[in-house]
Design a protein around this nucleic acid. Structure first.
Lengths: 304, 304
DNA sequence: GTCAATTACGTTCTCCGTAAGGATG
DNA sequence: CATCCTTACGGAGAACGTAATTGAC
């Protein structure tokens, strides 16, 4: 049956005040309307809940029985509503995102930390995964959204460009390239190269360029940028890394040189499941991430 | 805030069916109305609860959070309503009544037993007390109503005559009265009398008569009719008892003789607190008691 | 007579249904 | 184009407020 929270409130007000007039005022209605509300409630419950005359108001036996339930119902409604509103106000909730290790390890971690400080009640979860896995996680709903260098198909995913970044060559300080402000792809011909794993987007994006430039592939395929940097430092070769991954590659004796090539931009998309509304917390984090893009990278419309 | 049970039901229906059309039918409204209901619910909750397009319906993160509370609210409403309705239907509840021992010990016990068999869920409580205490219990609300030979004042109590009964003399089988069909008060002059306690209504009612008839007061004042009978049997004297108490006085060697006196009727009133609504169970018991009055006594209007 | 709850009645607003609109596959 | 959710709009009924009535002290 239909039983509105308003009538529950009316009941509780009258139970507490034992005065129609006072309870009516508390419920912001006229005494007349309040009297009718109690009447409706009793009709819906199917029992007289209050014994009353012009002087006294008291619960009947059925009213006492109903009172227990009314309190419980009111508490549940309050708790439920405040729970949802709390989430909406970012007082609670949880957000899970997926991002490539290059982002996750430095820039994104900083953004997340800032978000955590602003909204301590929200539980954050970050999965640093390679491109393919990122899309799978989004599709499965295991993360609210992902940051990824690949868009994913438009039927299943909703993607928007977050920013684009350039690549940098990392090499030893005593390398021939070390003094240059920038290089071109063709400059790399014949140079020994160490690379990231094939399942990562960096490999997938740079491989065609490197093949065309005819670099010397040393066969190294590592998953960590730190490992990559160590290999470069030890003289196994040079490598190309996206700008956001540079902090992970900083080492004594290593330098980076901008790859100045019109086509050599790496896009980072926000990818979410099509038709899926983001939770309030996820929306807030999404905005925080957008706002956290360094101004140097914030020119998504300029290049594509 | 106002949150009607109807919208909760709508939410649960849609959560389960994942189809607006089906859920609408289950709620007995048109698809259009149902869509509006979900919209209203989302507005009141302050968050989008379902992601939906023309093909799929799925809970949002807030919807999932709300779902937990919605189930609890619905359960509480169901339990509360059914609890009260159960009481109204006499499936549960409790009734306490007070009655004089003469009634309680025999006739009333039979009525209660019948009531218990008809409504096993209702817990019955019977207090066999003397007249003054009966009124006190009713006034204090410790019993739902009382059966009593005294009305109590009309400001505090609401009394109605249940029946009137006659008195009987009990004496030994070898007593001079034993063979008579009836006696008058004046016949008792000089006879040794044993009596019930002064706080009981029998004493209060019969004492004036006995004093006027100049019986011989032996000084015995007992509270149990069984004790009274034993004293009569042992030859301490005779006594007057109301008709309903006769079963308690039956003994080998004892007989009873009707007291045929126009004024010698004992009224039994149903007494309840003024302005107090009886619980459903109490109302039913009250009716059962009225209906259980033996036809021999059922002539309340004839004498007063 | 006074105060408090209820009833009467007119108004407002909510809520539903029919019908048109729009999105999706 | 078929299906399903949504919006538009109009009517029925619910709910409220003002004012008159009843009832208790």
């Amino acid at each position: 049956m239909n039983l509105s929270g308003r009538l529950i409130d009316a009941f509780l007000a009258l139970e507490q005040t034992r005065r129609f007039a006072v309870a009516a005022e508390r419920c912001h209605v006229s005494p007349s309307a309040f009297s009718q509300m109690i009447g409706r409630l009793e009709a819906q419950v199917g029992a007289r809940l209050f014994d009353r005359d012009t002087r006294n108001v008291a619960l009947t036996a059925e009213g006492q029985a109903f009172s227990v339930g009314a309190h419980r119902i009111a508490d549940e409604i309050r708790a439920t509503l405040s729970g949802v509103k709390d989430r909406a106000a970012l007082g609670s909730g949880r957000v899970a995102i997926a991002a490539p290790p290059s982002l996750a390890s430095d820039w994104l971690a900083a953004v997340l930390a800032e978000f955590r400080d602003a909204h301590p009640g929200v539980t954050l979860r970050l999965l640093d995964v390679v491109s393919d896995r990122c899309l799978a996680l989004v599709a499965a709903g295991e993360v609210d959204f992902g940051l990824n260098a690949q868009r994913g198909n438009d039927l299943e995913f909703d993607s928007s460009l977050l920013f684009q970044e350039r690549f940098h060559l990392i090499c030893r300080g005593d390398d021939a390239f070390a003094g240059r402000r920038s290089i071109r792809l063709r400059d790399l011909r014949g140079r020994p190269f160490v690379q990231t794993v094939r399942s990562g987007s960096v490999w997938q994006q740079t491989q065609p360029w490197l093949a065309k430039a005819q670099v010397h592939d040393t066969g190294f395929e590592v998953s960590q940028f730190g490992t990559l940097a160590a290999l470069v430092e030890r003289g196994f070769g040079v490598s190309l890394v996206p700008a956001t991954a540079l902090p992970l590659c900083r080492r004594q004796g290593l330098v980076d040189v901008l790859l100045d090539e019109r086509a050599a931009w790496r896009p980072i998309y926000r990818v979410q499941r099509r038709g899926r509304t983001l939770s309030a917390a996820a929306q807030a984090l999404r905005r925080a991430i957008s706002d956290g893009v360094p101004s140097a990278l914030r020119r998504p419309a300029s290049r594509r």
